[in-house]
Amino acid sequence: MNATTPNVRTPWAHHAIARLAHLSPAWFVLVMGWCGLAQAWLRATDVLGDMALGMSLVSGAFALLIFAILCVACLVRLNTHKTAVQVDLKHPVRHAFMATLPISLMLLSTLVAGLFWNVHPWLDQLLRTTWLLGSLLELAATVWVLGRWLRAKEQGGLQWATFTPVLFIPVVGNVLAPLGGVTMGFAPWATAQFGIGLLLWPVLQTLLIVRLVQAGPLPERMSPALFITVVPPSIIGLDMLQLNALMPVVWALWGVGLFFLMWAMTQLDTIRSQPFGMGHWGMSFPLAAFTTLTLRLSSAPEGTWLQLPATALLAITFLVILGLTLGTWRGLRAGTLLVAEG
């Protein structure tokens, strides 16, 4: 019976497990996108009321479902495709996506805290533990990613041709810290971790501009990644509000985020010309982050003029993330995703 047991699972199970070899950590960007959308809907409750709250709950539940599925799939992959995991760790671009797992932990715990904080002590403790785990793993991922820069290029060190906005992802994780950490009672640590991201953001932004001059434009399939440049100023703006900073600083950061959004949108024709792939998800969390900051500023006395644009941004972000999700579902069914890179 034992000899025939594997055959019971064929062909579907073995085919599915084989495809997991191509499940890179970049798939956790789906969790980031849906968490960001949930936060944007939550912020819109001041304007849209219970409808927005309901959409936030649905979006957050969907993000949690995706996270659970991906965690199980990654454990199976780690057990059955160790070589593929090692390849991801050594890849000049994909290695930075390792930070998306701890970022997802931080985003999920921050979102649930925004919805259910002080509902029950055990839930608060669970959220604290989850957030702290994500925070520490994110810091470790940041040190590991940037530690590669100290190597020779032959050993996977920094090279202009492989420097892309994907390397901003660890920075994003660090600047996320105050959004949940302050509420959960980790304000000193969250602010310290925020400082790491605040240091690294302008460094990486400068390096990106130098890379574009030295090595030319990004590959066309990487064009959605340019939207990642929108995230640091947007999240830092939300952090500044959380830390009670001066409003002119927040407005300046919103302006920087707007500029980078407009800069990234110059690549829309190139993005539309590319076959759908996981790279398109690079637009999701940046749009959600900028939308959330815009919604937050629209509730300020001097920001009432932003209420209509903020609502329009929320609708666009929702449609984009919904479209990306449907595209992902179609790609999985058609077998065009979870395949070797061309």
Rank of each mutant, 00 (worst) to 15 (best):
Gln159Trp: 12
Gln159Asp: 15
Trp160Phe: 06
Ala161Phe: 04
Ala161Ile: 11
Ala161Gln: 15
Thr162Asn: 13
Thr162Lys: 07
Phe163Thr: 04
Thr164Asp: 04
Thr164Tyr: 03
Thr164Glu: 05
Thr164Asn: 04
Pro165Ser: 05
Pro165Glu: 08
Pro165Arg: 04
Pro165Lys: 02
Val166Tyr: 00
Leu167Pro: 04
Leu167Val: 12
Ile169His: 00
Ile169Met: 07
Ile169Asp: 00
Val171Ile: 09
Val171Gln: 08
Val171Asp: 08
Val171Glu: 03
Val172Tyr: 01
Val172His: 04
Val172Pro: 03
Val172Met: 06
Gly173Arg: 04
Asn174Tyr: 11
Asn174Trp: 07
Val175Asn: 12
Val175His: 10
Val175Cys: 12
Ala177Asp: 15
Leu179Ala: 10
Leu179Glu: 14
Leu179Pro: 13
Leu179Met: 15
Leu179Lys: 11
Gly180Cys: 09
Gly180Met: 05
Gly181Arg: 09
Thr183Asp: 07
Phe186Lys: 03
Ala187Val: 12
Ala187Phe: 12
Pro188Gly: 15
Trp189Val: 15
Trp189Leu: 15
Ala190Phe: 15
Ala190Thr: 12
Ala190Lys: 14
Ala190Ile: 14
Ala190Glu: 12
Ala190His: 13
Thr191Cys: 09
Thr191Glu: 13
Ala192Glu: 14
Gln193Ile: 13
Gln193Leu: 13
Gln193Tyr: 10
Phe194Asp: 12
Phe194Leu: 07
Gly195Asn: 08
Ile196Val: 15
Ile196Lys: 02
Gly197Leu: 04
Gly197Asn: 04
Gly197Ser: 04
Gly197Ala: 07
Leu198His: 00
Leu198Asp: 05
Leu198Trp: 05
Leu198Lys: 02
Leu199Phe: 06
Leu199Met: 10
Leu199Asp: 01
Leu199Ile: 13
Leu200Tyr: 03
Leu200Trp: 05
Leu200Gln: 01
Trp201Ala: 01
Trp201Phe: 03
Pro202Ser: 11
Pro202Thr: 10
Pro202Met: 10
Leu204Asp: 06
Leu204Gln: 10
Leu204Tyr: 09
Thr206Tyr: 07
Thr206Cys: 05
Thr206Ala: 10
Leu208Cys: 00
Leu208Pro: 02
Leu208Glu: 00
Ile209Ser: 00
Val210Phe: 09
Val210Asp: 05
Arg211Thr: 00
Leu212Gly: 01
Val213Pro: 08
Gln214Asp: 11
Gln214Asn: 12
Gln214His: 12
Gln214Thr: 13
Ala215Trp: 04
Gly216Thr: 08
Gly216Met: 09
Pro217His: 05
Pro217Ala: 05
Leu218Tyr: 03
Leu218Phe: 03
Pro219Lys: 07
Pro219Thr: 06
Glu220Ala: 12
Arg221Gln: 14
Arg221Asn: 14
Met222Asn: 15
Met222Gly: 11
Ser223Pro: 13
Ser223Asp: 14
Pro224Gly: 10
Pro224Leu: 10
Leu226Trp: 08
Phe227Cys: 01
Phe227Asn: 00
Ile228Trp: 00
Ile228Cys: 00
Thr229Cys: 09
Val230Gly: 02
Val231Thr: 11
Val231Ile: 12
Val231Phe: 07
Pro232Trp: 02
Pro232Lys: 08
Pro233Asn: 11
Pro233Asp: 04
Ser234Cys: 06
Ser234Phe: 07
Ser234Tyr: 07
Ser234Val: 02
Ser234Ile: 01
